[in-house]
Nucleic acid binder design. Sequence first.
DNA 1: CGGCATTAGTTAGTGCACTAAGTAAGACGG
DNA 2: CCGTCTTACTTAGTGCACTAACTAATGCCG
Lengths: 152, 152
Amino acid sequence: MTVQDNDLLLERQLCFGLSVASRSVIAAYRPVLAKLSLTHPQYLVMLALWEQAPRQVKDIGGALLLEPATLSPLLKRLEALGYVTRRRSEEDRRALAVDLTPAGAALREKALSVPGTMLARLGLDRDSAIALHHSMTALIEAATRADGVADN
Amino acid sequence: MTVQDNDLLLERQLCFGLSVASRSVIAAYRPVLAKLSLTHPQYLVMLALWEQAPRQVKDIGGALLLEPATLSPLLKRLEALGYVTRRRSEEDRRALAVDLTPAGAALREKALSVPGTMLARLGLDRDSAIALHHSMTALIEAATRADGVADN
DNA sequence: CGGCATTAGTTAGTGCACTAAGTAAGACGG
DNA sequence: CCGTCTTACTTAGTGCACTAACTAATGCCG
């Protein structure tokens, strides 16, 4: 078995570990978020709106690194749930002003317990969580930078 | 701003960072894997088969932590690509024996360069990759263990 | 002004991932 | 044996995520 052959195994552990970890953690969120009637991506959008509202689709997409085409139907589902409103902006009628409804704003109170619950579920203390966050940030930075580069 | 309010921000960084990192890294793989005509999940299945073939759907699912319902159509696409065969097992006609075609086995040679290319693209050395892998493994372990636990 | 490129969202199409329900084959107890 | 339980996979339905193509509003330049 050559060095490259070994890489094919190691590498499986790495890229693979990342996607499995992501799916596993999202799965761990599922029952917790179900109490808010939210999926994980919907939860992230709500977090973005709780930090600032109203926001444009483009702005939310920039914050979450999601394509407008992904957000468009997701936001309609949040609207159907009664958590957000979608209306064209007055100043620029191309832009959509996504805002919280009273129910959406109120949901924040119920969401306050989510982080604590999840850290406990995952058995993480703040330090590990922060360390993990640093790794993820560095990876994101490297991966998005790699996007523009011509590879061979 | 209370401690819990702060958590809602920190936590956004964590769970969120993980899923963004996963998507970003998969996106970085995309152009590399396109040369093999594979998506990232398809690549993971091929890695599993290069390690051992033939394998049952259940077995592959166990290795990749994927539901049979996810693999079923994915394997049909790999079959359509000419990389694998799907036929009922002789011993147990419920089970599907997923095996490599000559083209699928040959593809492994082209895949040998992927790990190196990706580590370079992501600017990771082996040590960081291994450290990252440890974090991911611990997270997966914690998240899947949390699955069974009754939460409140 | 008037035309034309740019920008913000939406729609269509493909593929992944999950849950729930269905089918078919093996296993097992009476 | 025969019915029942279990197991392996498939199908249906929902939702996320991406690319490409489209619509509509804005901005800009001559």
